[in-house]
Design a protein around this nucleic acid. Structure first.
Lengths: 192, 192
DNA sequence: TATATAAGTAAGCAATCGCTTACTTATTGA
DNA sequence: TCAATAAGTAAGCGATTGCTTACTTATATA
């Protein structure tokens, strides 16, 4: 009974995520979402309840994208430290080539929201857990292969690499490629 | 001839800067500025022309604050590398103690604007020049005192430390103090 | 002291915000 | 075949946005 939907939830959600990624939360209006998602505001609100809720789901979507694509060099690594460089340079290339011109949605969101929204903070914590484990697991493999000193503090090193990753999310927006590659290269040398 | 101003330009500008620092550009409304600056919107627009222009002047004001306070541990250093740690930890304390709860206005602005506004980009470049020189000069002094290897690439090292600084501006918003101090400590060890 | 002039105030402009109401259209199961 | 029901559309809600207009108040100079 009743009419069937013209749109696919997953598809319009991905488009919403891209809109938030490109423009940030506040700068993405309901009209813009309507346009980018290709569905009417009435439909949008019936499906996603509110702009806030749609944003939270978009963050979940972006975490999925991280698992499947962005963090792949780390998650698929068998312990080669150079996979970390690949992760960094892939990110730089994606931003500078305008493929994902607005950097990292989680970093942008951390800056825009801080800890002002518990629901958003939950998503941010979830992401930082994810990237922490990605680094930690890679480093554990590297250590067992003798590529890191036996007494290396992997917790500390993981926290360090998260800091460097987030450093890139800011500098990639304003600094030239040479400065970025200096940063990455020094970071890589520092962990070997 | 004519009536004299009740407000001091410098004072209300500092209050505007604080408002933008606390809330970001878009989240700071003309009503909020009116309230925080303690002057009427008519007066505000007569003095500063537009919200955009007021924001640009606020960024200049914040750069001045960097020169006089925030970057002081670097600018006043005679080449002790531990002054860099002081700079990092001072920043963490200022944010976590809610003295400057919203981190770094320049980093926030880089994330909010990217390169979408030439006038804003100009201010960001000016800041990054400033912090670059602060690191470079400190490192030059450290090198001449024999605290760095003779063949150390100071340009590369400065770019690295800028990256780490910006990493802190993101992580300080969402991660716990232990993770932040891990990051700082590893960074310090990496340059010695 | 009178007047020119600048600064202050309150109200309100058009545009846009997130979201909803009123209504039309299409599809399903009996 | 046809009522029940869900989805789509267009218009518009009150609130808020950046900014201005119309007017009042105060002060430096003649």
């Amino acid at each position: 009974m009743g009419r069937s939907k013209k749109y696919k939830r997953q598809e319009v959600l991905e488009k919403a995520m891209k809109a938030f990624w490109d423009n940030g939360f506040i700068n993405t209006s309901a009209r813009m979402l309507e346009d980018k998602m290709g569905i009417n505001q009435r439909t949008l609100y019936a499906e996603f309840k509110s702009k806030d809720q749609l944003f939270i789901e978009s963050l979940q979507q972006y975490e999925q994208l991280n698992k499947e694509v962005i963090l792949k060099p780390l998650l698929a690594s068998d312990g080669d430290l150079e996979d970390i460089r690949t992760f960094f340079t892939d990110f730089i290339v994606a931003v500078k080539s305008k493929q994902s011109p607005n950097g990292c949605l989680f970093a942008n969101t951390a800056m825009e929201f801080g800890t002002t929204s518990p629901e958003v903070k939950e998503r941010l914590d979830s992401y930082f857990d994810l990237i922490y484990m990605a680094f930690f697991d890679l480093l554990t493999k590297a250590k067992s292969k003798g590529k890191l000193a036996k007494n290396t503090d992997l917790v500390k090193l993981s926290n360090y690499l998260i800091g460097c990753t987030e450093g890139l999310t800011v500098t990639v927006k304003v600094r030239d490629e040479k400065a970025l590659l200096d940063f990455v290269d020094f970071t890589m040398n520092s962990i070997k």
